[in-house]
């Protein structure tokens, strides 16, 4: 990543294309101890009983993937993701390809922070999860 001085409003992060399989989704749910009552993240049938189109990816997993776009961009440099806000607009289904986009939309020289729009969209270009990230560049 470049330094705070070198980044510009309008710069892009990604896009990153990801295929999230049902098994990856189940692995995340299990790792996080989402056992009972979390059938919607592990089982198509249980998800349909709740009126969903099938298994969905946990919101926290989407938040993790959006955050990863930002932390990958930071790499090992001395910057810190200080804030991430997400809105889950449309359920994200596994076994689909999603694309994660990021745009730098604002820079604040006083506290050396940058604001970044992030979102995840499906094959139809529908935005499923949207978010805003703040990164602080430390000296």
């Amino acid at each position: 990543m470049n330094s705070f001085e070198e980044i510009n409003i309008g710069d892009t992060l990604g896009p990153l294309e990801l295929f999230v399989s049902k098994d990856q989704c189940r692995a995340y749910a299990r790792t996080m101890g989402m056992g009972e009552g979390a059938g919607r993240f592990t089982d198509d049938e249980a998800a349909r009983k709740e009126g969903l189109p099938g298994m969905i990816i946990p919101g926290n997993m989407s938040l993790g993937l959006l955050s990863k776009l930002v932390t990958d961009w930071i790499g090992s440099s001395n910057a810190w993701l200080t804030r991430m806000s997400t809105t889950y607009r449309v359920p994200v289904q596994p076994d689909h390809t999603v694309t994660i986009h990021g745009f730098i939309t604002n820079k604040n020289p006083e506290d050396r922070t940058a604001e970044i729009d992030v979102w995840m969209e499906n094959e139809e270009s529908e935005r499923l999860v949207t978010g805003t990230a703040t990164v602080e560049f430390r000296k």
Partner: peptide, 9 residues
């Protein structure tokens, strides 16, 4: 209208 909630939209 964009119905934008994000700057870039």
């Amino acid at each position: 209208g964009s119905d934008s909630h994000l700057v870039s939209l």
